[in-house]
Design a protein around this nucleic acid. Sequence first.
DNA 1: CTTAAAATATACCAAACTTGTATATTTTAT
DNA 2: ATAAAATATACAAGTTTGGTATATTTTAAG
Lengths: 144, 144
Amino acid sequence: MHLTQETDYAMRIIYCLAKSGRRMDASSISEEMRISLRFSLKILGKLAGAGLVNSYKGMRGGYELARPADQITLKQVLDVIEGHAYAISRCLCEGEDCNRGMSGCCVFQNLWAQITSEVNQTLSGITFADMLARDTNRKTGTPD
Amino acid sequence: MHLTQETDYAMRIIYCLAKSGRRMDASSISEEMRISLRFSLKILGKLAGAGLVNSYKGMRGGYELARPADQITLKQVLDVIEGHAYAISRCLCEGEDCNRGMSGCCVFQNLWAQITSEVNQTLSGITFADMLARDTNRKTGTPD
DNA sequence: CTTAAAATATACCAAACTTGTATATTTTAT
DNA sequence: ATAAAATATACAAGTTTGGTATATTTTAAG
């Protein structure tokens, strides 16, 4: 029912990198976000594999955003961690026999598709630059 | 990430009762919906406990909707099965320390709350009478 | 008043998913 | 050469989900 903890962490990690604006090693990120180092590394690996962050090996290595924060959306992070699978019902998943052996698709499918699409659109419309701005507004009391 | 299978089944069961308009025993429902009898009984028990369906023991017993289909929303079914817990992030769950030991709540909370609220509103606005109409329209080719 | 058809209560189990850890290897700036 | 970093791969504990089993209670009908 929820975004997984891993997705939540991934969002926080990207947010952290967006906020710092600099290259950071996994230890710093994990300390700042209070996520275990190992799990941070696992997530960073996925984010790097998907091209959202660049990774640098060796001394002075670490991670940085692969592009400016205003070009990374929440939806992109979600897709990396949950594999393009965000859908409110598994009825929408490929290969799912949502009508249980009967021909056609089930009565609910159109509705689930509509809701899923709305959520995805919202998440596609929000970048990490927006999130940084939200945080600033939050602290100064400006409404969203 | 998804509504659980159980929620999906519960929706189909209520839909089935709405469509038949009569009292049905669990075996008939389970056969029609292609859900195992045992699991159907479990779900029907929850729906009866929550007052969405009435149950009758003994011979000629079975289940029927506790009120007309236009007074039962998808949201009500969701709440019965997933316990008022539908939220896109567990950040919104009671007792969740979403800011990981730091004071206040996390940057994402407002956003998750907004999205969750939108989904819940959509589901609250759709009754099983609407779903029956959708099915009819689907078969006659009328768009939603 | 007996019987069979139904729901109910309770407990259990297995599979899948999530979260997290461990170990060994590779890369690279200094 | 070395130490600090990422990477690859595998493993495992914990939780949730999906589903089953058994025994009991209720009730219409004969």
